[in-house]
Simulated assay, not measured.
Amino acid sequence: MDALVNSIDRLVTWLQYPAWSLFGLCLIIGGYFFMSGGREGREKAKTIWISGVIGLFVVLGVKAIVSNVKETQVFGVVLDGLTRLF
């Protein structure tokens, strides 16, 4: 079980780098639409910014969940307890 949790932790850590880059790109593209697009551009910019923030929160939230599971090892304790019962 430790190997699975560690693999997921490494994968999520690796995914954070492109997530931050894409978030920055969303800010830049949204800023371009905001500055040059008029009323429609402002709406597009808001959509791009909100999507970027949501995507970043998802990746950071997954990292927080994986870190919590890694620290507490809840799955290992539960599985260990079940094997003792049977």
Rank of each mutant, 00 (worst) to 15 (best):
R10E: 11
R10F: 12
L11V: 14
V12A: 06
V12N: 07
T13C: 10
L15C: 08
Y17Q: 03
A19G: 10
S21R: 06
S21D: 00
L22V: 08
F23H: 02
G24V: 01
L25T: 09
L25W: 03
L25R: 00
L27H: 02
L27P: 01
I28G: 00
I28R: 01
I28E: 00
I29A: 11
G30E: 03
G30F: 00
G31V: 03
Y32E: 01
F33M: 07
F33K: 11
F34T: 00
F34L: 07
S36D: 07
G37L: 05
G37Q: 02
G38R: 04
E40H: 06
G41K: 07
R42H: 08
A45L: 03
K46T: 12
K46Q: 10
I50T: 09
S51I: 04
G52L: 06
I54H: 00
I54M: 09
G55E: 04
G55Y: 01
G55K: 04
G55W: 01
L56T: 04
F57C: 13
V58E: 03
V58M: 11
L60C: 08
L60S: 12
G61E: 01
K63I: 01
A64L: 14
I65C: 07
I65A: 14
V66W: 05
S67F: 04
S67R: 13
K70V: 01
K70L: 10
K70Q: 14
E71V: 10
E71S: 15
T72P: 00
V74G: 02
V74Y: 12
F75G: 14
V77E: 13
V77S: 13
V78G: 08
V78F: 14
V78M: 12
L79M: 14
L79A: 14
D80G: 15
G81Q: 08
T83R: 15
R84Q: 13
L85R: 12
L85W: 13
L85K: 12
F86E: 08
F86L: 11
F86Y: 11
